[in-house]
Amino acid sequence: MLKEIWDNLKGLYSLGVGMAITGRYLLSPVETIHYPRQVVADEIMESFRGPIQLTFGPKDPAQSRCISCQMCVKACPGHCLTVTKGETKSPVVWLYDFSYCCLCGACVETCPASALEFSHKVYLVAKSRAELSMDLLADLKSRALKKAESVKSELPGSAPTTQNLAAPGPKDSPVKAEATKTPLANSDPEPKAPTEARPPKKAAKADPLPSDATIESRPKNGSDQ
């Protein structure tokens, strides 16, 4: 009997401990990233499996590694890929319907040329089904263009710390968000000849991943952290 009472009193004490914990949480700052005022920084998105994209070519980033072997087309369980071979090995049409994609990664695994990879487009938003049909070649070209520009214009920045998980989001950035820039919009001029085949290591640290060409643009990484 006394043991029961003592157990219950210890239980009451543990209840108090629990309430102290939640009370402390109540008064601590929020852990979540408050989209759209903040977005998650690219550094922690390295393992995120977003819609697939073509990898940069070894010599010319705007030229994909794809050899039009159609292995990905056959492997895809949702039949969302369309690849048309040109006169050379390179494809002329590379269409990807994200509304059928289940992000299984079969295409990425099976490509013999390592031409496909997962992008890190966390904040992809579409307002119609048509916007989810992506032209990956145009996307590749625009990304290569952006990379070339970013490599030229940025200073070698310090390595990003792990604490700055939040980069300023589109609502906060002084740069106005550019007009909706879907990968379908193909108004790019001729891609400039790349200045370097591969960016130097320091700049790579500051901008390790190609920033995704999502609908809203974000300021460059190394400078604003």
């Binding site: 109540l26 601590s28 929020v30 408050h34």
Partner: peptide, 13 residues
Amino acid sequence: KVAGFIQRRPGPY
């Protein structure tokens, strides 16, 4: 709001 802050998130905003 209290539920949000206890769970380290903003709640209605």
